[in-house]
Simulated assay, not measured.
Amino acid sequence: MNLVARSVPFGDLQLKNIRGSHLEAWVKQMHVDGLAPRTIANRFTAVRTIFRAAVRDRRIPTDPTVDVSRPPKKPTSREQQVEVPTPEAVAELLSATEPRMRAYIGVCAFAGLRLGEASALNIDAIDFLKRTLRVERQVQYKPKFGAEVKDPKHASKREVYIADELAEMLARHIKEHGAAPSGWLFHNGADRPLPPSTVDSWWQRTVKAAGTAGLHIHGLRHFYASGLIAAGCDVVTVQRALGHAKPSLTLDVYSHLWPTAEDRTRKASSAMLRDVLGHGADSVRTEGVN
């Protein structure tokens, strides 16, 4: 609730002086700032709860949130849900961010980690010899308890095969910035992994500096998934890399990124045609010599 209170631009106004227009402007600004639809909806619901309680207690006569359009928790289409940044945008983010968080972007964009999984990354989860990264924990925010380290989502425990370049980026991070005494790679200085509120503040500064305002950090995970798909990885490979419980979930989110049956048929036919014509050309050249 403290995070929500800090995010409202009308926090210095008395409840009776807050109008629907204040709330509309706040919701629009959150969209501009790149917050996820679910985050916007949750913050709006928290504020609406305060106004409803104030009406019940007769501190204000009406609830100003009534006529405000409630933001959807999910985008209305798959294309809207899957916001894939360009390689140029990811490069700008890496360049614009503070050095100690460059590897954070790296594990999200090139290993597909969720925000909570990246925050809970521990040095013992990295095997530099095998070039693997184990996802074993996540940082999760609970209203009553704050940030907690917990097991990741169902079926999300996984081993991710990482590129040599990402392994080098992580090794450089450890050499230059170290790790917390308990091994956390991204920590708050008190031997605790970064809480979601700190990551959110850093991300907003970074996208603004990179000129990519509006991009949500989850877009880096989509960037990773789209790269695997573009490289020809099948749905089960992508599912396991992302830690989805079922291939159907992966298809539900990313099916529009895979080539269609028509695309695959044309590509296969084209390969066969080139192969046949290639042999034909060799035959023609041989016949000419004889």
Rank of each mutant, 00 (worst) to 15 (best):
E168P: 05
E88W: 08
D234S: 05
D127N: 15
G227T: 04
R43T: 06
R102N: 04
S269L: 13
L170A: 02
V199S: 03
W203R: 02
C108P: 00
V90I: 05
G232S: 01
L23Y: 04
M272V: 13
V90H: 08
S270A: 12
P71K: 06
K130F: 06
V236F: 12
E88R: 13
I217F: 11
K74G: 03
T76G: 13
A179Y: 05
N42Q: 14
Q239I: 03
D124M: 10
V253M: 08
A281Q: 15
Y161W: 12
N2F: 09
D63N: 13
V199E: 04
S255I: 09
V8E: 00
Q29F: 01
T286E: 15
L249S: 08
A96M: 08
R70F: 11
A118R: 07
V160Q: 05
T97Q: 09
R266E: 11
R52G: 01
V135L: 03
T237M: 09
W26D: 09
H22L: 05
N290P: 06
A225W: 07
G146C: 02
L185S: 00
G183M: 02
K73L: 11
K150Q: 15
L257Y: 07
R56E: 11
Q14L: 11
F44G: 00
A111I: 07
R205N: 14
D67M: 14
A103W: 01
A53Q: 14
R205A: 05
S226I: 03
Q204D: 07
P195I: 03
T39W: 02
R70D: 01
R131Q: 15
I40T: 00
H244A: 01
I126M: 05
S21K: 14
V160P: 01
V238N: 03
S182E: 06
L35N: 02
P37M: 04
V207T: 10
Q138W: 08
E159K: 03
T97D: 08
D63C: 10
W258K: 03
H222G: 03
P152I: 07
R221V: 00
S7H: 12
C233R: 12
V32C: 09
W184Y: 13
G183L: 02
H177S: 07
R158I: 08
Y254R: 06
W26T: 05
V4M: 10
H279C: 12
N2W: 12
A89N: 13
E136V: 08
L35E: 01
R48C: 12
I174E: 00
L242Y: 04
V284D: 13
F223E: 09
A147W: 07
D57Q: 13
L215G: 06
A261M: 11
A225L: 02
A118E: 00
N122F: 00
L15R: 06
A190H: 13
K157F: 10
P247C: 00
I50W: 02
H216W: 03
Q204V: 09
A91P: 09
G243M: 12
H256M: 04
D57A: 13
W203C: 01
D12P: 02
W26M: 09
M101F: 10
Q204H: 15
T76K: 14
A171D: 09
L185W: 02
D263L: 07
T49G: 12
E287H: 15
H256D: 00
R172V: 07
T39F: 06
I60C: 01
G20F: 05
R172Y: 12
A53Y: 11
P9K: 06
W258F: 14
V253E: 11
R172F: 11
I229H: 09
G116Q: 10
S201M: 10
